[in-house]
């Protein structure tokens, strides 16, 4: 099988989000970065399916030069090679991102063969547009299931499970298919030291797509006012237990 996992580099925001002076981005000078959580599960799923069925796997991202770190992370987990669509610091909207990814996928498939499965996160942790996977699927003319917490390849089809109220809805799609997944699909492994070593020498193909004018244009970001909670310190250590019980009693839960 051939499997592609699409990922996005996002900051680890910690306790409080601070914006740049022009309020058009998060001030990331003091922040670490990671792969968006849902997508990490897409990478893990891709690696597991290839481990079971054999084949090869590719990771694809659109992002700044530093996003190569997240591509290496994915390869450390077992992905074979990477494609990096290099951008400057400007944001790309969902439509532009999907168009660039589609072109990269078509070009890779022209030389290496069709991907049986393409994984996306259901939505990115940061901009949360909920749309890139569906747009790429449509552009490639492939069926798509979204928001999945269960994926199993069964011959030439894939069984997909979506968590809904009261249980799970099941979809069965023919391959090739595009799947958007959510955290909880699996528990991503930690990269091993040999995995990290191998990832360093795995190939990364870089190209620089042109950014079209955004259709969804970011004007500015706003940090919402807090909920205005004012913490009352009940005490410290075990001695605070009676005060805690009093609070629970007043809240009507004891």
């Amino acid at each position: 099988m051939r499997i592609l996992a699409c990922i996005k580099r996002v900051p680890i925001t910690g306790g409080r989000i601070v914006l740049t002076d022009d309020a058009r981005a998060i001030d990331t000078r003091h922040l670490g970065f990671t792969m968006s959580p849902h997508e990490e599960c897409g990478v893990e799923e891709a690696v597991r399916i290839i481990e079971t069925n054999g084949g090869d796997s590719v990771v694809l991202t659109l992002g700044p030069s530093e996003a190569v770190e997240q591509l290496r992370d994915a390869m450390a987990l077992g992905i074979d090679r990477a494609i990096h669509l290099l951008t400057d610091d400007q944001e790309w909207d969902g439509e532009a991102t999907a168009a660039a990814l589609t072109e990269a996928i078509q070009s890779d498939e022209a030389t290496s063969g069709r991907f049986d499965l393409i994984f996306f996160g259901n939505e990115s942790a940061d901009s949360a547009g909920f749309q890139v996977g569906a747009r790429v699927a449509r552009a490639l003319g492939r069926y798509c299931a979204t928001g999945l917490k269960g994926v199993s390849v069964e011959g030439s089809s894939v069984r997909c499970e979506q968590e809904v109220e009261g249980g799970r809805d099941v979809y069965v799609l023919p391959l090739p298919a595009v799947l958007t997944v959510k955290e909880g699909l699996n528990l991503p492994r930690y990269p091993s030291v040999p995995g990290r070593m191998r990832a360093r020498s795995k190939p990364v193909a870089v190209s620089t797509p042109l950014r079209p004018e955004p259709q969804l244009e970011l004007v500015r970001l706003i940090v919402p006012a807090g909920q205005g909670r004012q913490a009352e310190v009940l005490g410290s250590g075990a001695a605070a237990a009676p005060a805690v019980v009093e609070v629970l009693r007043k809240a009507g839960v004891l």
């Binding site: 998060i26 004018e213 244009e217 970011l218 004007v219 970001l221 706003i222 940090v223 919402p224």
Partner: peptide, 8 residues
């Protein structure tokens, strides 16, 4: 975080 955006 909130975003103000225009749809073209």
């Amino acid at each position: 975080l909130l975003e103000e955006a225009r749809l073209h």
